[in-house]
Design a protein around this nucleic acid. Structure first.
Length: 555
RNA sequence: UGGGGCGUCGCCAAGUGGUAAGGCUCUGGGUUUUGAUCUCAGCAUGCGUAGGUUCGAGUCCUACCGCCCCAGCCA
């Protein structure tokens, strides 16, 4: 809606057609995760699509937990999913829904199907059922239990519900066509026995509906007009429609499929992400290197940057892999515009200003953002001894080196221009201190002698600063497609994906950092206070680098 | 190999018969107290391939080729 020039995607076209033809008067979508893991960047796309469409077309969007398999689900996941959706900036319509809310209705409809002669209890076990199903090029054959009488099916199904059979002893199947070219239509199972308590319904049920049977009906009950899912469900659509047509449902939703979002140098499959967590490759689901929403949040990604990224990738049916640079662009774009600036020296090198009194302290005024006056100013103490980054000093530079060099000048950001006179080394020959002079009267102006500084570097007072640790991240995998073509993604885990640095010196204003906004440490990148630390409990300050600044020089 | 989905610049993606949008990446220039930002310029005689229809085809037709999905009582 904000970009009226942006071409419509295929789902928006369908919606506009439905709206203008009067087929529907208001759209209703839903985001239907199974609470069996943490949400990742791929889910963010589904969330933005479903909630975004509802916003754009003045409709509503439900949050529905597709909780039909208690063996894989946990309350921990439903809580994290709700938090992630809210954090991304979306609000679902009314209360949270659960497919389990409809178990009674779904059971009644199963009875209806049996009475219509369209469903039967099958005693085939899993292996037998596979044999009877046939394969991709050969038709299946009918189950020997397919022609049981309606009465017998009713009795058997009731026994299934009553808990008289063990897990897997039998199942309820729908009678369609065992020779159908679409495997999904070969008498799919719609109820299976699982003597497993459910996080929502407790011990009430020991039979649970399958996804295929429950999903469309859940949509129909909620009045969903456009049921959007990913491409792997395309071949389930005929089944989805079969149930809608053969059951007395209150509305007739339609399913549309789009391609899921993949990002290179990453994996997004709950199983694989879980493996990374379980094997200790990362510290948890919210490790800042994880492509999970919670990991990205802890890393410092903003909800807007994720929304913008997702929007930039489009909605199509093409299987593709988006380059991480597109994600990185979206974060930098948002952070550059909104992150207040600060200075932090990651690898301190002492600089003594020989022509500056030891007991003197000047407050330098620095804008919080170079392009946004509305963000105000802050002040920085300038003293005789300072810290600059080791990488910002060389005894002899070259034409391209725009930092501090012996005998040359450099601008200290928001302060004086200094000139280096001497490098002091330890016994190992390492530079441990630089003696320099300030050029008088150069705060906010160029030197009167006309000799300008070649570059600008950041600094912090050596006596007035805040000590902190910093975590720098690199991509979690060294392979551009870690799990493509049957590769073992664990083999390309990047051993240097996390670099922990301690002894960093930040400007005094960071002594009480905000935990809700990212900062730009000038010339170093964007940083976010690690949410895992507790400053009130005396934990040390730790900042996570969300992403570095764009760097066209280092390459 | 049965069925289904998809093939437009390195990546994402518009285009719906009238002569290839845009974004990311990359390259080069300008501005700059962040080697950032901003800004200017460049980057597909070509749309999986081969034929055909048409005054005209990425768009229509035919045949091939390639990639992805489906044989859970997972979602």
């Amino acid at each position: 809606m904000s970009d009226s020039n942006k071409p419509l995607n295929f789902i928006e076209k369908i919606i506009e057609d439905d709206l203008s033809s009067g087929k529907i008067t208001q759209i209703k979508t839903r985001f239907p995760p199974e609470p069996n893991g943490y949400l990742h960047i791929g889910h963010a796309k589904s969330i933005c699509l479903n909630f975004g469409l509802a916003q754009k077309y003045a409709g509503t969007c439900n949050l529905r937990f597709d909780d039909t398999n208690p063996e894989k689900e946990e309350m921990e996941y439903v809580d994290s999913i709700k938090e992630d959706v809210r954090w991304l900036g979306f609000q679902w319509e009314g209360d949270v829904h659960y497919t389990s809310d409809y178990f009674d209705q779904l059971y009644q409809w199963a009875l209806y199907l049996i009475k219509e002669g369209k469903a039967y209890v099958c005693d085939l076990n899993a292996e037998e059922m596979r044999e009877y199903r046939g394969n991709l090029k050969e038709p299946g054959k009918n189950s020997p239990y397919r022609d049981r009488s309606i009465e017998e099916n009713l009795t058997l199904f009731e026994k299934m519900r009553a808990g008289e059979f063990a897990d897997g002893a039998c199942s309820l199947r729908v009678k369609i066509d065992m020779a159908h070219p679409n495997m999904q239509m070969r008498d799919p199972v719609i109820y299976r026995i699982k003597h497993t308590p459910h996080h929502q319904t407790g011990d009430k049920w020991c039979i649970y509906p399958s996804y295929d049977y429950a999903h469309g009906q859940g949509d129909a009950i909620e009045g969903i007009t456009h049921s959007i899912c990913t491409l792997e469900f395309v071949e389930h659509r005929p089944l989805y429609e079969w149930f809608i047509e053969n059951l007395p449902v209150p509305s007739k939703p339609h399913q549309y499929e789009f391609s899921r979002l993949n990002v290179n140098y990453s994996v997004t499959s709950k199983r694989k992400l879980k493996q990374l967590v379980d094997e200790g490759v990362v510290s948890g689901w919210d490790d800042p290197r994880m492509p999970t929403i919670s990991g990205m949040r802890r890393r410092g990604y903003t909800p807007k940057s994720i929304r913008d990224f997702v929007d930039s990738t489009g909605v199509t049916k093409v299987d593709g892999v988006v380059d991480v640079s597109q994600l990185e662009f979206a974060v930098r774009e948002d952070l550059n515009e909104n992150a207040p600036r600060a200075m932090c020296v990651l690898d301190p090198l002492k600089v003594t200003v020989t022509n500056y009194p030891e007991d003197k302290l000047e407050e330098m005024t620095a804008p919080n953002h170079p392009q946004r006056e509305d963000m105000g100013n802050r002040s920085l103490p300038f003293t005789q001894t300072l810290f600059i980054d080791k990488a910002d000093f060389q005894e002899t530079g070259n034409k391209k080196y725009k930092r501090l060099v012996l005998g040359k000048r450099v601008r200290l950001r928001n302060a004086y221009i200094i000139e280096a006179d001497e490098a002091i080394k330890n016994d190992a020959g390492e530079i441990i201190e630089v003696k320099a002079r300030i050029i008088e009267n150069t705060v906010g102006k160029n030197p009167e002698d006309g000799i300008k500084a070649k570059g600008v570097i950041h600094w912090v007072s050596a006596t007035n600063n805040v000590d902190c640790d910093v975590n720098l991240y690199d991509r979690l995998f060294t392979d551009i497609a870690p799990d493509a073509g049957g590769k073992d993604f664990m083999e390309s885990v990047n051993p240097e994906s996390l670099q922990k640095i301690s002894g960093c010196k930040a400007e005094v204003n960071l002594a009480t950092p905000r935990s809700d906004i990212p900062y730009q440490f000038e010339r170093e990148g964007y940083f976010f206070l690690d949410s895992a630390i507790d400053l009130d409990a005396g934990d040390k300050l730790v900042f996570n680098r969300t992403i570095g600044l764009r760097d066209t020089w280092a390459k």
